[in-house]
């Protein structure tokens, strides 16, 4: 088996330089690649374009890279939880492209499927459609307008999985699968950090969510904080 293991986040991000485009997995703070984000801060690369559903919070997730002004542009569907983000956006320091969530996920997925563009009805008749090619299509007996959306081209895709093996096969846990799965198929270089790194043969091939062919570098992450944005509970009794 081909061995995809690297020592740590630093080694996994080798070759990641200023002005590159990155995909960063997670939904809110759920399933974000914590070790890689910390390594990006340490590395100090600047002018990054980040494709990520959200932009973290002020002191965690991609918020850390905003604080250090390493991000030039965010491509996201929802960015509401971050004051520093708001400040940089309003002052014009940070460029923001808002993309409907399903379009964002599919643009990642299509990169992994080798499909350069796809039609979607999301955003037709809205400002999302401005400047985009459209096409009338009859599908399932219904004729409607579709926007032509392009697959993303990312220099690096950085994801977090629950378990991975040395060949790069990945299994995600619960809703931390979110954008991590489509992004894990989508980078020119794809980096996966995992909570548990096991030898080949230990994962059931039937349970693999992303085959190792898509993963270039895998490492075992450490000290996951797994912060929860909104703890909502029922009280007993």
């Amino acid at each position: 088996m081909i061995n995809r293991v690297v020592k740590n986040a630093e080694e996994a991000l080798e070759g990641l330089t200023d002005n590159m485009t990155l995909m960063v997995g997670g939904f809110g703070l759920c399933g974000i690649p914590e070790n890689s984000i910390a390594a990006l801060v340490k590395k100090g690369v600047k002018g990054l374009t980040c494709i990520s559903n959200n932009a973290g919070v002020d002191d965690f997730g991609l918020g850390l890279l905003l604080q250090t002004k390493q991000i030039k542009k965010m491509i996201s569907s929802y960015v509401g939880e971050n004051a520093e983000f708001e400040r940089q956006m309003l002052s014009g320091e940070l460029e923001v492209e808002l993309v409907p969530q399903g379009t964002l996920a599919t643009r990642c997925m299509m990169a992994g499927y080798g499909i350069p563009f796809f039609p979607t009805p999301a955003g037709v008749g809205t400002e999302v459609a401005i400047g985009k090619e459209t096409k009338m299509v009859t599908f399932n007996g219904e004729t409607k307008e579709y926007l032509i959306e392009k697959a993303f081209e990312a220099d690096f895709a950085i994801v977090k999985a629950w378990k991975g093996d040395t060949a790069g096969n990945l299994i995600f846990k619960s809703t931390a699968r979110n954008f991590n799965q489509p992004m894990s198929m989508a980078g020119k270089i794809t980096v996966a950090e995992v909570e548990e790194l096991v030898e080949v043969g230990e994962l059931n091939p039937d349970h693999i969510h992303t085959p190792g062919i898509y993963i270039h570098r895998i490492f075992k992450g450490e000290n996951y904080e797994k912060r929860i944005e909104q703890i909502t509970v029922r009280k007993k009794g």
């Binding site: 969530q101 399903g102 699968r177 909104q230 909502t232």
Partner: peptide
């Protein structure tokens, strides 16, 4: 922390539930 809803609140799964990716 790995089980939240679209509002980023912690939730639970019912019997017969399933999990899938965003795409």
């Amino acid at each position: 922390a790995d089980l939240i809803n679209a509002g980023k609140q912690t939730v639970t799964l019912l019997k017969g539930s399933s999990i899938f990716d965003s795409a």
